[in-house]
Nucleic acid binder design. Structure first.
Lengths: 133, 133
DNA sequence: GCATGCACTTACCTCAAGGTAATCTTCACT
DNA sequence: AGTGAAGATTACCTTGAGGTAAGTGCATGC
């Protein structure tokens, strides 16, 4: 990973190139997932190890059943999460990150670090901006 | 930057810690911005150097004037972008990334790399999933 | 026999993001 | 006088993400 302005150039060029190429931009595509309310929370929760449906629900209590099911289905469809049904008495279902899912953790981690490191400056900027208004 | 599962643990712990601390989670906060339709496109466009309003509009033709203004205002409020008015004949306005704005480029770059490197596998997974349906 | 947990599914509703289009002000050009 | 560029602001409308609440099928515990 380089740094500085030239890096930005490389990124935006690749971004632009990718955008032009296969129709819809991969970055847009991925950002839509990452930007939604629950996907990354579930990925990070599953990063701690496989979990069952209600186990996930207990770990993330403020998600609705509907959104839990739907978000898991989407993650599964994208190949980030795999679903395993065990034929027990009441059938239990386990969700776990795939390799691809795991590979998201590091790049996403950089963003978490940035967010945690920058939030004070962002909030300060907001205060200043609103005060000037 | 470490790698592997233990890294995930660190991230999610810090995430959880940050979430509990100052009310609304910084990561959620930042993700809302990053996940919106135009913010990151504008940040990456401005990474190439300062631009004027209509210059940005030409660089990103499918954004509406309304959303261009609004997104720039939000980025300015968060301290990622600064706005400079020049007292020329028809007053011109220049937007540029702040230091904070620049600092987003590298962590976000990791995500671009991941997206570009993973999109083929994601699309393949979607095809498989939809075929099984 | 009734309630409870598990893993969903479905119907219905709300709210906010974002699009469209019209309008504004000031100046310069013709 | 009329047109056009710059940098917006405003009113109106559509769409979809996400919430609420209820229902489903099955099995075990009380």
């Amino acid at each position: 990973m380089l740094d500085g302005v030239e890096t930005a150039q490389i990124y935006i060029e690749r971004w632009a190139a990718a955008a032009g190429a296969t129709g819809p931009c991969p970055v847009r595509d991925v950002l839509d997932k990452i930007g939604d309310k629950w996907s990354m929370l579930l990925v990070m929760t599953l990063a701690g190890g496989p979990k069952r449906f209600n186990e996930l629900h207990r770990a993330v209590p403020d998600i609705s059943q509907k959104m839990l099911t739907q978000t898991l289905r989407d993650l599964q469809r994208d190949g980030l999460v795999s679903r395993h049904v065990f034929d027990t008495k009441p059938p239990s279902v386990e969700y776990r990150l795939t390799r691809l899912g795991h590979s998201l953790i590091v790049p996403f981690g950089h963003l978490i670090e940035w967010a945690n490191g920058s939030i004070r400056r962002i909030e300060a900027a907001r205060k200043d901006f609103d005060a000037a208004r």
